[in-house]
Amino acid sequence: MSSAETMSIFSPALSARFDALVLKYPVKRSALIPMMLYAQDEVGYLSDAVIEEIAQRLDLTMLDVRNVASYYSMLRFKPVGKYNVQVCTNISCMLRGAYDIFEHLEEKLGIGHKGITADGVFSLEEVECIGVCCWAPAIQVNYDFHDDLTNDKVDEVIAAYRAKAGRADAKGESANA
């Protein structure tokens, strides 16, 4: 089903991207996981409306979509902060002080694991290995990696994002730009 035939909840660009995506595979269901991830990038999380549209696009049931979505840890059914700070605490990072980083962030942001700051700018999450072991400790803010961290470097990273959020607010950009 193309976006032309039905009202899409996605932006025209994403809608067009999805139209093309399903054609890349021998079986269109293969587009499911990328679709969910890209939809989440735009909408912020997998709302019922997102799930419904994806199910329709791929001729799946909403149950199918939910079952697959809930398997993958990057996919979520609730919103997070504009900048989702993911701290790896797995072994390589742990050995190099990841828990200190995590605690530092907890104090600094005033939130715990899976918490969202009151202004909605940051959320914090302890995550499993993100594949940056040799440059530990590391965090990922949305999709951006920040490695070889110390508490001071973390402060700089957070400050930079806070400034970016401020600029975005001032320009009135959408929260998920």
């Binding site: 499911l32 991830l37 993958y72 990057m74």
Partner: peptide, 21 residues
Amino acid sequence: QTGAGAYEVGEESALMESLEG
């Protein structure tokens, strides 16, 4: 193709399942 966060998908047949959506 992108994954979406699952160590188990590194297992070859699980990866095929994931790639099949």
